[in-house]
C-alpha cells in the first residue's frame, strides 16, 4: 500500500477550503497551517499562465526529515505516510531545516507539526479533510499500488508533475496539469 495525493491544478481555484478544513479537523492553532496555496504565474501581461496548487508535506519515499531526526519522532507509517510522534519530539527543528518543502512548523506546544494525510480519518475509511471538503473536486487520495484506484488511474492517464523531484526525496503529492 502506498498512499498518495493527486491534485488537479486545472480544477483548483485556490479557495483555501483545504486549509480551513485542515485547521478545523486537526485543531491547528491560529497563525499556523499544515497546508497552503501557491499561485505560480508565468509570462508577461497580458499573455499569462498560472498554476494554482494546494501544497503540504509530500510524504516522501526518501524523507530527509525522517533520516535526520535524532529521536525517531519523525517516522514512516504504514502506507508511506510520514508522521511525527509528538511525545518523542524534542523540537530540535533539524527536520524543518531538512525539509525542502517548508512543510513543518513548531507547534506552540513545542513539538513539530505537519500534514498527516489525516491518517486518523483514513484509518476510519474516510478521505483526508482537505480532499473531502474541496468544492472543486480537484483533490484525490488513495493507494497508488492498487491499479484500480482513482489515483492510479489519474496518474496513468494524465500529465502530472511533483514538486522539486530533483531533491531525490521522491515526493508523493502529484499535480495534474
Amino acid at each position: 500500500m502506498r498512499y498518495v495525493m493527486v491534485i488537479d491544478t486545472k480544477r483548483c481555484v485556490g479557495c483555501m477550503d483545504c486549509v480551513v478544513a485542515c485547521k478545523t479537523e486537526n485543531n491547528v492553532p491560529e497563525g499556523y497551517n499544515r497546508d497552503w496555496i501557491t499561485e505560480e504565474v508565468r509570462g508577461k501581461n497580458p499573455t499569462l499562465q498560472m498554476e494554482i496548487r494546494s501544497e503540504r508535506c509530500n510524504h516522501c519515499d526518501r524523507p530527509p526529515c525522517v533520516y535526520c531526526c535524532p529521536t525517531g519522532a519523525s517516522h514512516i507509517h504504514e502506507g508511506g505516510v510520514v508522521l511525527v510522534t509528538h511525545e518523542k519530539c524534542i523540537g530540535c527543528k533539524a527536520c524543518i531545516a531538512a525539509c525542502p518543502y517548508d512543510a513543518r512548523f513548531v507547534h506552540p506546544e513545542g513539538y513539530i507539526d505537519k500534514c498527516t494525510f489525516c491518517i486518523h480519518r483514513v484509518e476510519q475509511g474516510l478521505k483526508p479533510a482537505c480532499v473531502s471538503v474541496c468544492p472543486t473536486h480537484c483533490m484525490h487520495f488513495g493507494d497508488l499500488e492498487d491499479p484500480q484506484s482513482e489515483v492510479a488511474r489519474l496518474l496513468s492517464s494524465r500529465a502530472h508533475h511533483s514538486l522539486l523531484p530533483q531533491t531525490g526525496c521522491q515526493p508523493h503529492v502529484f499535480y495534474l496539469t
Partner: peptide, 8 residues
C-alpha cells in the same frame, strides 16, 4: 518569470 506567492 516565476512569481511565487506562497502561503496564498
Amino acid at each position: 518569470m516565476i512569481n511565487r506567492s506562497q502561503a496564498a
